[in-house]
Design a protein around this nucleic acid. Structure first.
Lengths: 145, 145
DNA sequence: TATTGTTATACTCTATAACTATA
DNA sequence: TATAGTTATAGAGTATAACAATA
């Protein structure tokens, strides 16, 4: 029988994405981190003093769902908060947070090698360029909130 | 600031997959179908007489979650069931199911054009080949149940 | 002993709505 | 009037466990 998904890019995109996410989630669980929490550490590290709304905007996570995640990272002492004005709060990694970020980064890179190791660096970069051009374009059309 | 996700294929894979799935879900909602239900119609159409366990195995959906979905499609008169032996049930599309499958297929193709339209057919096929080689390989290592 | 199909149930992720405090 | 942050809650999607019937 003919494969009904043969020409459907979206189908294959999703199947691989699900497998990759499951692998990443399992790997990060050893650090007691979820994928989104690790991403938050990466974004805050790259943008010290960023607000949590902005982190959510970058990652595509809604304000309402950011609150409990930030609370969790605060409770664990991985990030610190400092008021900028009456409503903005600047987020930064603590020492433990920076240490955790480094471990998470290593974890993610091992994961990438495990899942995408059969592709050369050049092939991966080419894929990244194509994927990024497709998902970072629809910002205007998509309703990110 | 440097983009912390710049070299991470998995990140871009997921971001695009989420956007694509949201677009597909919205499009299929006009037919009152979820993406997985549409996929089921495609698989049953391509494999008349297939069992629901086998459909689940192909799509990566667990037995326990297949039951209510099959029940829904039966209730709507889109698929029919015939006992093969005491435990296997052969699934087939009804007339209405075949009509719905055709509509869903058109819907999916329009969706693919909308999301991936900036890629040539050749680029898409190349992407599909790479993605398929990555996700259809780990069958052995992954625990699909 | 392994498999099909079913039910019940829990957990995660995400979405909406409403609220406050502030710009 | 718009935005930041919070809380509560509802809805998908997916996970496990247990069961009966059958191979």
């Amino acid at each position: 029988m003919t494969d009904p998904f043969e020409g459907l890019l979206g189908y294959h995109l999703r199947r691989l994405s699900v497998i990759a996410m499951a692998d990443l989630a399992t790997a990060l669980a050893h650090l007691d981190l979820r994928p989104t929490e690790a991403s938050m550490l990466f974004v805050i590290d790259a943008n010290p003093g960023i607000s949590q709304s902005e982190v959510g905007r970058i990652l595509g996570v809604k304000r309402a769902n950011m609150a409990p995640m930030v609370a969790t990272l605060m409770r664990r002492g991985l990030i610190e908060r400092e008021p900028v004005d009456g409503r903005l709060q600047a987020l930064r990694l603590s020492c433990e947070g920076e240490s955790m970020r480094a471990k998470a980064r290593a974890c993610v890179e091992t994961h990438e090698e495990r899942v995408f190791g059969s592709l050369s660096r050049g092939e991966r970069n080419q894929m990244i360029a194509v994927l990024a051009s497709l998902w970072s374009k629809p910002e205007a059309e998509m309703d990110v909130e």
